[in-house]
């Protein structure tokens, strides 16, 4: 009984994780410029994958340790790649959406150069 409940909970977590990933995909399509798209892509996929991992962990408790490691790796690598990409995108001066209100980094590097 308990095991069946845990299974159900795991499947629900899996479902919620997929919903977040879907939202990330939607954000990727709808957001106006690169930086906003990076935001949408990184946050949602990180949480979505973490939820998926915990869901699978509930479905198959034997795999828990390895799933935990995958989650840790993703927590460290995902924001790092997002940051490196954002830095590169800013350096090559990609067009930002006209909605952008302020860009302190461009101001500062403009002064330096």
């Amino acid at each position: 009984m308990i095991a069946a409940l845990l299974d159900l909970l795991g499947a629900l977590l899996l479902l919620v994780g997929s919903v977040f990933m879907l939202l990330g995909g939607l954000g990727l399509v709808r957001m106006p410029d690169v930086f906003n798209r990076i935001q949408a892509g990184t946050k949602t996929t990180t949480l979505g994958t973490l939820l998926t991992l915990s869901g699978v962990g509930l479905l198959q408790p034997d795999w828990a340790l390895k799933l935990l490691l995958i989650g840790l790796f993703i927590l460290f690598t995902n924001p790092l790649s997002a940051q490196v990409l954002a830095r590169a995108a800013h350096r090559i001066g990609l067009r930002k959406t006209p909605l952008t209100r302020v860009d302190r980094l461009a101001e500062d590097t403009g002064e330096d150069a």
């Binding site: 977040f20 990330g24 939607l26 957001m31 949408a40 800013h90 909605l99 209100r101 302190r104």
Partner: peptide
């Protein structure tokens, strides 16, 4: 983020601080 993405008029107001 879900709220932003799902609202039809996409209420973003971005900037780099």
């Amino acid at each position: 983020l879900a709220r932003v993405v799902l609202s039809p008029d996409l209420p973003v107001n971005p900037g780099i601080v």
